[in-house]
Each structure stands twice: as C-alpha cells, then as structure tokens.
C-alpha cells in the first residue's frame, strides 16, 4: 500500500486553508463553561479529555496515524481534513445518505456518525485502502463495467457498503443486494447499475470471470 502524502505547507491548499481557519475559530470558542463542569465533577477526571485538541491514534488502511483533534471532530472530518483521505464524501453529515461509508472493524459504518476520538482502537478501511494505488478493486471494476455511477459522488460509499456486504455474503441474490445497499442513496438514480455491479463483483471476487 502506498503511503499517501499529507498536504505540505507550501502553496496552501483549500483543505489546508480550511484546517487553519477551523483551528483559529475553535480556539476562540473554547471557553470557561466546559472547564467549570470539569471542576464541579472531579471524579474520574482522568477519563475526561478536551474540549481542546487531544492526541489520538487512528488505524486507517493498515497504517497508524497520530493526530491532535478536538473531541467534536467526527471520523469523517478527521479522514478528510487531517489525513487527506477524501474518498469518503461529506453530503448529509447526518447518517442518512451513505456517501461517507467506511469499514470499521470490517463492518460498514457512517464515518459522519462516529467521533474520531471514539474510533480509536478500531481498524478503519476507506476506499483509498481497498486496492493498491493505480489498481482497481474487483468491486470498483464491476461498478465501471456495469455503469453503476453517473456523477460518481455517491460511488465510494456504495463500493464500501458493497465490500462490507460481500465479505459477509459472497453469494447474494438481487433482492439481497438491494437490501444490502439500503443505507446508501444515489440521486442520479443508478440503482439498477449498482445492483448489477454487486452481483458482477461477487462473481469477480470468486474468480468467476
């Protein structure tokens, strides 16, 4: 697996710019209110972190990343804005569209609905880790072959949901494939292609073609 480069300071990227401004804003917001609560309840104080940045360790695509985040940073924002893994998309950010789907300990999950700090100790797989750089995973290949995307924005989420499902059930029927992708939306309406891709991917992964 190729090591992805983090954005450099030289030539501030849009993402890096957002990160810098975000940090400045949050520094202003951290007030005495939360600190007050901390003082009021001194029990189990050592188990309390934040509200400012705290060091966390994430396991993503087989690599260990040490980063500093506020407890309010979601797994999705940590992946996209800190680790530059932008395959998981941020659309509804409320656990109802599926574009942010990643695998957490092998299971499909909405990265927008998990705190990064709560994702420590779990194995996270994003679409970037699905196949070596420059190669297509059989599921991705099946999506291309079966015209399973139009604008493509929802595709990484669908591919990851499909991966989680085929790991569990390598021989799905079409009805099962439909149900398995019930957590992902495609506003272009490519569902027919997506279902065909799931069945095709299942065949490819068994070496059927």
């Amino acid at each position: 697996m190729s090591k992805r480069k983090l954005p450099t300071q030289k030539g501030l990227s849009r993402r890096a710019f957002l990160k810098t401004t975000g940090a400045a804003v949050s520094a202003g917001v951290v007030s005495g209110a939360a600190a007050e609560l901390l003082n009021a309840q001194s029990t189990a104080k050592n188990k309390v972190a934040g509200p400012g940045e705290v060091p966390i360790t994430l396991r993503v695509n087989g690599e260990t990343h040490n980063l500093n985040v506020e407890p309010r940073v979601t797994l999705l924002d940590a992946l996209r804005d800190r680790l530059d893994l932008t395959g998981a998309k941020k659309v509804c950010d409320r656990g109802t569209c599926g574009t942010c789907t990643v695998l957490v300990d092998g299971k499909a999950a909405y990265a927008c609905s998990m705190l990064a700090i709560d994702a420590q100790g779990r194995e996270i797989l994003t679409i970037e880790g699905l196949a070596p750089e420059g190669e297509l995973h059989p599921i991705s290949a099946a999506f291309v072959e079966n015209d399973a995307q139009q604008c493509g924005f929802c595709t990484p989420g669908f591919v990851m949901a499909c991966k989680a499902y085929l790991d569990r059930n390598p021989n799905p029927t079409e009805a099962q494939a439909k149900k398995a992708l019930g957590g992902n939306l495609c506003r272009c309406g490519t569902y027919i292609g997506v279902r065909a891709a799931v069945l095709d991917a299942a065949a490819r992964m068994k070496g059927g073609r």
Binding site: V29, T43, K47, P51, V54, E70, P71, R72, I117
Partner: peptide
C-alpha cells in the same frame, strides 16, 4: 457542533458519576 469534553469511562458506575444532575449538561 459546539465544543465539548469527552469522557471515556470503563464502568457503568464511573459513567453515571460523569453525567450531570440536569438535562442538557
């Protein structure tokens, strides 16, 4: 989302002690 502090208790008792007596806190 506002900032907040995050508590990570390992027992139920600890967790109950980390909650507040008022809703919303």
């Amino acid at each position: 989302m506002n900032v907040f502090e995050y508590a990570n208790p390992t027992t139920t008792k600890e967790a109950a002690g980390l909650l507040a007596a008022q809703w919303g806190e």
